[in-house]
Design a protein around this nucleic acid. Structure first.
Lengths: 395, 395
DNA sequence: CTTCTTTGTTCTCTCAGTGGAGAAAGTTCC
DNA sequence: GGAACTTTCTCCACTGAGAGAACAAAGAAG
């Protein structure tokens, strides 16, 4: 497969990102935004058309003079986003504007190992390809549920992903697809997703907290992902919330994740079901032989008081940790995402209550705490945003 | 006073910063570093010499050919750093390389209000001026012990500084000195100090934790201060370390500062002295009628077991908070500074022990936790670094 | 003393980018 | 319908940043 076209300079890169984020625009509008002379602008746009990254899209309605000619990103452009979760795979194909054209999702245990999971992900992409969704792949982004060396494009020392440590995910997929590929933590790509097309569109510094099998936090500083010196920034699941709490898989006691991670929720739910404290959970246990975090979510939605109590308690713990992080980081927004976020306002109310009470007024004065807007799509959209930022930059 | 000269473009700014950080250099060396053609370099250097920001400094020894001509920052250049503490004022005058030429320090209660304190600070600067240390002031940086709106150059809602709220510190001092002035939080300028000439010289992302009257944290991301959306980032003194801890001045219970801030230490020391648990502290109480945090420090240095126990306990609490922040932020270095830091290794050992035990291995694998290298000078040097970064940038 | 090396200076060439002068294509008013 | 005005696009000459060659200056090595 031939190597995909890339912008030749910062002006071309800027124009591509503008067309990606704002959609088709007339040459005159572009000129007003990028502040280039009309001659220079025409030159760069014509070059982008030659490169087949951009194409003319007819004439706009007149605004009192000659009709302006509109350009848009080539409609053949495709980006691919993979969101590898602990228990699922999501694959999406987008156009250049990062609008989802096709999306497949299926359960898959990440513990099957890198080779098996990535093969399955590529099979899903193959289905989308058969639907004719992939005329040209210009790049792919991949999110994985654990620490990533972004530079090397591989997981490092992931706690829940046996067989993935230092597996060259980026290079293997790049080889397979013949296009640029980037790999990042799943929480980071969700944050990028919300930054691109979700609640965080106009915020420069914010946090995205994902509560799922694990608990993690994407950190955005000045519109870019902050990864820390060894790529483990945002790993808040093992922050201590209590001295003498339950034992965590990491070996310490009282970790946030040991209170409110997927495993902890399932553990508490099983106890409640066995003790007969919750009729809804006991019924699930009898039916399915076991209860999971998802059952707690379902029971809570249907009004089960014990399940609601568990969500409240968890929200309080998350709020305690976030209160500290708000004092420290003073973000402009906090987004709650992940499976548990479907619980919505019960959880949100508890988190808000603790954070607004425990953090300094200056930091909470203008701090929205909201649910993810993109939901299940945040990850895959963020993955395409990650790679498109890369592809739409000078080579 | 005429307005001070500023570089005219990014090349000149880069050259000035280089001469500031690396000292005098030959034109040939500068050319190698900034990667400009010799003609362009000569043009910019000559312009800087015309502006009296740079001057020739003779010829270097030959390296096998024509001797190269050395340039240096003008030795008449002066920056002023003010470090307003809760209980003290520090003023320093530096040359262009930010080397301290004169330094005065005196106790001063910040609660006297902005006008009185700043007047006193200017009097101290006047003494240094009388010693002939101020041929030309090119800029002044000011650190104050509370939240600052960096953009507006004034404190906002400071908890311990009555009479300072929204007082236009920057503009008042700029008017007085007739030069560019910037105001920032005292912890931020200490972090800049260590970044410029201390332990953090080669680190891009780090934290500086100051333990004094209050407890605060300077956050450096990619070599620049991170201030958060409302300028209150790093305000870690009121992070909760225990549910049922002592009441804090902020109204909550269990704040870090309520355990280990200056007031908390004095409170515990008084209790220990009254109860007769510590002979050293009881003696101080009898002599002076009261005991302070500084007395605890002195008693601990002289081996008093109760005082040492208090330091250990405090170190443990600080370590608990830092463990969470390390998980979240994954810094490359943590610097402990402030009055209590004089306690050195007792405190450090405790903090290290907790952080290394409670944070993920990936984040602590290569994380030095060290004492401030510049000590009392970190603040004033950081203040001059803050303003010199500003002055040595294109107008 | 000649030759080689390093440094500094002068001059010319290249190239990105600007801004003005048409040309094209439309609207509005009489 | 035509004149006058607008808006947009294209062509072209001009400007300024910067590179690089050529030359001059100053010292080292033989």
């Amino acid at each position: 497969m031939r190597t995909t076209a890339r912008p030749e300079n910062r002006h071309q890169a800027r124009l591509l990102r503008l067309l990606r984020d704002e959609g088709p625009r007339s040459r005159a509008e572009l000129g007003d935004i990028v502040r280039l002379s009309r001659s220079k602008l025409a030159m760069e746009l014509n070059r982008l058309i030659e490169l087949r990254l951009v194409e003319p899209a007819g004439l706009a309605a007149s605004r009192g003079g000659r009709r302006s000619s509109v350009v848009r990103l080539s409609p053949r452009l495709r980006f691919v986003g993979f969101d590898i979760g602990a228990t699922s795979i999501d694959v999406a194909v987008t156009n250049g504007e990062l609008e989802i054209l096709g999306h497949l999702s299926e359960p898959c245990d990440v513990r099957l190992g890198a080779t098996a999971v990535l093969e399955r992900a590529l099979e899903l992409l193959g289905k989308l390809r058969q639907e004719g969704l992939l005329p040209e792949v210009h790049g792919a982004g991949i999110g994985v549920p654990g620490p990533v060396s972004f530079r090397d494009g591989m997981p490092v020392a992931p706690p829940i992903m046996p067989g993935w440590d230092r597996f060259p995910v980026r290079d293997v997929i790049a080889q397979e697809l013949g296009c640029p590929v980037l790999v990042d933590n799943d929480v980071n790509i969700m944050a990028l997703g919300e930054l691109h097309g979700g609640v965080a569109r106009s915020v420069r510094d914010f946090l995205l907290v994902k509560i799922g099998t694990g608990i993690g936090c994407g950190i955005v500083v000045d519109g870019a992902i902050y990864r820390g010196v060894s790529g483990s920034a945002g790993d808040i699941g093992h922050i201590r919330v209590d001295d003498d709490g339950p034992l965590c898989a990491c070996g310490n006691t009282g970790c946030l994740e040991a209170y409110f991670g997927g495993a902890a929720l399932a553990r508490d739910a099983l106890a409640a079901a066995r003790a007969g404290r919750s009729a809804a959970l006991a019924r699930r246990l009898a039916e399915a032989g076991t209860v999971t975090a998802a059952d707690v979510a379902a029971a809570a939605s249907s009004g089960d008081p014990v399940a609601i109590g568990m969500i409240r308690e968890g929200g309080r713990r998350v709020g305690q940790v976030l209160a500290g992080l708000v004092s420290f980081f003073n973000p402009g927004l906090i987004i709650i995402a992940g499976g548990v976020a479907r619980l919505g306002h019960t959880l949100l109310a508890e988190v808000r209550s603790v954070v607004y009470r425990r953090s300094p007024p200056l930091a909470t004065g203008n701090l929205p705490i909201v649910l993810s807007e993109l939901g299940d799509h945040a990850g895959v959209i963020g993955a395409t945003r990650l790679i498109s930022d890369h592809v739409f930059s000078p080579a």
